[in-house]
């Protein structure tokens, strides 16, 4: 076995792969947060709740569809509808109510915390506060090369591929379609967007729907590697948030890179320092990024105008 400075090469590669896999999930969550931030300037704490409901719906649908992959599609559709509904029926009326008041900036964020609590409570009532298993046909056992088995499993591979596909899809939509142009345009200057003929309210609903779909992919892909409970995606929200901040909150590419960087960082901390500091590390990284480069690695310097 190859050793460099006494550290086993296999362990490094393994840690790297695991990091990329968990990082892909963080990227998806970060992407969801960035999409909402870009379309409505709201940090959506309810994203974890929306993803949980979508994942439960995927889990339920699997009982009837008998196919994990179809159930992932159901979860994605559910996530998109839920995201659109939260924007259309809660966030938009709320924003109209508080417009111009001192609470205009903070009330929507507090509301997302409220929605998170509400969704968790409802999920607990429907599915109980217990752990259930949402299983994938792919093995959770690591790949074996000759006599060595690594920690990276086919499900991990599916996570990486799935996240990459979602990221690529959003990159294409954002950069090469009319919808993407409208999404990018309306993020900061709704007045100008309206004068350019863009229906900003509709674009915002689409932004939330896209975010909900991305969050659902994250939930449905990561859950087979663990368990499903009303709280099981809470840590993912924290990681996604840190990843989004690393990436600059405004940047889709930043969210992708931020997630993978964070995932790899966590994997190495877990491997070489210990599980007890991983969670702590998330917050240290968060505060460090905010202090040193508040606009994130892909963000622009200077304040926002909106």
């Amino acid at each position: 076995m190859l050793h460099i400075w006494g550290i086993e090469m296999k362990t490094i590669l393994e840690t790297l792969l695991i990091g990329v896999s968990s990082g892909s999930i963080y990227s998806l969550m970060a992407l969801a947060l960035v999409l909402v931030w870009r379309s409505t300037r709201v940090v959506n704490f309810a994203q974890a709740g929306q993803a949980i409901i979508s994942t439960y719906i995927g889990y339920e649908s699997m009982k009837h569809l008998h196919s994990y992959w179809y159930s992932v599609l159901v979860a994605i559709v559910a996530g998109a509808i839920l995201g659109a509904a939260v924007e259309a029926f809660v966030m938009r009326p709320l924003a109209k109510r508080v417009r111009g008041s001192a609470a205009a900036d903070i009330a929507p964020v507090i509301a997302t915390l409220g929605i998170l609590g509400l969704i968790r409570g409802v999920a607990g009532l429907i599915w109980g506060n217990t752990f259930v298993q949402y299983t994938s046909p792919l093995s959770g056992k690591g790949y074996t090369f000759g006599s060595t088995t690594i920690q990276f499993s086919p499900q991990n591979a599916a996570i990486v591929i799935g996240a990459a596909l979602v990221m690529a899809a959003f990159a294409i939509i954002f950069n090469f379609t009319k919808l993407g142009l409208a999404l990018r345009a309306s993020s900061f200057q709704p007045e100008i967007s309206r004068l350019a003929g863009i229906r900003v309210d509709r674009i915002r609903v689409i932004g939330w729907a896209c975010a909900g779909a991305a969050g659902a992919v994250a939930g449905a892909l990561v859950t087979p590697t663990a368990y499903l409970s009303p709280n099981s995606l809470d840590l993912l929200l924290v990681s996604g948030f840190v990843a989004a901040v690393i990436g600059g909150l405004d940047s889709l590419v930043g969210a992708g890179i931020g997630g993978v960087v964070l995932g790899i960082g966590f994997a190495f901390i877990l491997q070489y320092i210990g599980a007890s500091v991983t969670f702590l590390a998330a917050f240290i990284i968060l505060i460090f990024v905010l202090l040193v480069k508040p606009a994130g690695i892909m963000g622009k310097s200077g304040g926002r105008s909106a």
Partner: peptide, 27 residues
């Protein structure tokens, strides 16, 4: 009164494309 994040060309394109953005599929 421009979209600061977009290029000059995209700024103009955003307005010209309005008429055709009406159907979701097209969008």
């Amino acid at each position: 009164g421009l979209f600061q994040d977009l290029t000059v060309f995209e700024n103009v394109l955003a307005a010209v494309e309005e008429e055709k953005r009406s159907t979701l599929q097209n969008a």
